[in-house]
């Protein structure tokens, strides 16, 4: 089964406020407020470049963040994407 491809709204669809350890996201499309911790804001920003599956998204994130080499990363990212899908912030086109 191919890995699921995800899509997120463009950045202008979100109002983001950084508090101390969490990020507030006002999702304009739904009017809902989300309170998220890293790496959710980073995932949404990377996904704003275009639809991507977990492997593609990981490549984009590696451009900006130094993760080191960890085989678990892609599985962890898939789990975070599934959470964001449940929250309605990403979906499968």
């Amino acid at each position: 089964m191919p890995a699921p491809v995800y899509r997120a709204d463009p950045e202008k669809a979100r109002r983001i406020v950084q508090l101390d350890s969490v990020t507030l996201i006002f999702h304009r499309a739904s009017g809902l407020t989300h309170i998220v911790a890293p790496p959710a804001p980073e995932i949404l920003a990377a996904l704003a470049e275009g639809d991507a599956d977990a492997a593609t998204l990981l490549d984009r994130l590696k451009r900006d963040f130094d993760f080191g080499e960890d085989e678990e990363l892609e599985a962890a990212l898939s789990a975070r994407l599934a959470e964001l899908e449940t929250a309605g912030l990403v979906w499968r086109p």
């Binding site: 508090l19 101390d20 350890s21 969490v22 507030l24 407020t33 309170i35």
Partner: peptide
Amino acid sequence: MGAGEVFVRLT
């Protein structure tokens, strides 16, 4: 209090 908790409690 953490800002996240304050925000949630105020909502």
